[in-house]
């Protein structure tokens, strides 16, 4: 990576959700290991993709990095500051610098607020502008996401999904953040609208020098928008590399299966492609298999994989993989 300045760094980040029983005195009877030891660096100005199937913990990982969930253990270091030890006002203050764009453009905007109030919320929360300047700033933000500034007094339900997602983007940009977690920002949108939002995100990155963590299950879109991509399976990152390296030479058997499962909109290519069809379903994160989490579905698993967790290895060129076999 050019520049190579780390903006966000996680160190064996874990988030386990307790499963409890009892009415007044609650007993913990188990835990969902949504994120189970994630270590990665996000460089300033890059887009890091985090892909995986539903339930693999990618959304939880994003939210834990932003301290929307407090991690069970591990550290999140944002520009030199350990967020996991911050509380109250200092943490609230840090939130100004990191934001999130949500998956569901319908649920992520308060239906009882006008667009102006939605977008200006970060400004009010951090007292960034005077009440007078607020309107100007909101209009400027609307122009930035290419919405008509006349819309400020309308309500979210008057907008289409794509337009709402733009409003969500404007809100995320209001406090001039450096880092934005995009949590499946396009998966709820129509095919023809997805490209509009993706292009907008790319333009904004160029213009404002933003750093993105792009969480998605659409591998084609991730290849398009990201610089580096991490593949997650059952709470762990199994492979991470620069995108062309990862897509053209996937090493981990799960990554290989994932890549081959994505259909290509080209019948000529499709006829020639070999699919790796995985058996069965993703195991429950309450009781992940011992050893390599993927061992239960892995076509090349051997004895060792069922007992011993594979180490996180650097295979050169910034390509990391966690697998005994490759």
């Amino acid at each position: 990576m050019r520049g190579k300045k780390v903006l966000v760094k996680t160190e064996s980040l874990k988030k386990h959700f307790p499963i409890t029983r009892g009415i007044i005195f609650q007993q913990q009877v188990g835990s969902v290991r949504a994120v189970d030891g994630v270590t990665l660096n996000i460089y300033r100005g890059e887009t890091l993709g985090l892909v995986g199937e539903s339930g693999c913990g990618k959304t939880t990982a994003g939210r834990t990095i932003l301290q929307l969930y407090r991690p069970t253990s591990g550290r999140v270091i944002f520009d030199g500051t350990d967020l996991t030890i911050l509380k109250g006002e200092p943490l609230r203050d840090m939130r100004r610098r990191m934001q999130m764009i949500f998956q569901d453009p319908y649920a992520s905007l308060n239906p009882r607020m006008t667009i102006a109030r939605i977008i200006s919320e970060p400004l009010r929360a951090h007292k960034l502008t005077s009440a007078k300047e607020q309107v100007d700033r909101v209009q400027e933000l609307l122009r930035l996401v290419r919405l008509n500034p006349r819309f400020i007094n309308r309500y979210p339900h008057e907008f289409s999904g794509g337009q709402r997602q733009r409003i969500g983007v404007a809100r995320a940009l209001a406090s001039n953040p450096e880092f934005i977690v995009c949590d499946e920002p396009i998966s709820a949108l129509d095919v023809s609208i997805q490209a509009q939002i993706v292009n907008l995100l790319e333009d904004l990155q160029d213009k404002l020098g933003l750093t993105y963590m792009f969480i998605a299950h659409d591998l084609s879109m991730v290849r398009h928008i990201c610089d580096r991509v991490a593949v997650m399976y059952l709470g762990k990152i199994v492979e991470l590399a620069i995108k062309d390296e990862l897509y053209d030479h996937p090493l981990h058997p799960y990554t290989q299966a994932l890549m081959s499962a994505v259909p290509v909109p080209d019948p000529v290519v499709e006829r020639k492609r070999k699919r790796i069809i995985l058996e069965g379903d993703v195991p429950s994160p309450i009781n992940p298999p011992p050893g390599c989490h993927f061992s239960t579905r892995c076509p090349i698993a051997r004895e060792e994989c069922f007992h011993q967790e594979p180490p996180w290895r650097d295979v050169g060129g910034g390509h990391f993989v966690a697998c005994h076999e490759c």
């Binding site: 095919v191 023809s192 997805q194 490209a195 591998l219 084609s220 879109m221 290849r223 398009h224 995108k243 062309d244 897509y247 890549m259 994505v262 290509v264 909109p265 080209d266 290519v269």
Partner: peptide, 9 residues
């Protein structure tokens, strides 16, 4: 308008 998984543009 749809990107492809098998090539980078």
């Amino acid at each position: 308008s749809v990107p492809r998984v098998d090539r980078t543009s």
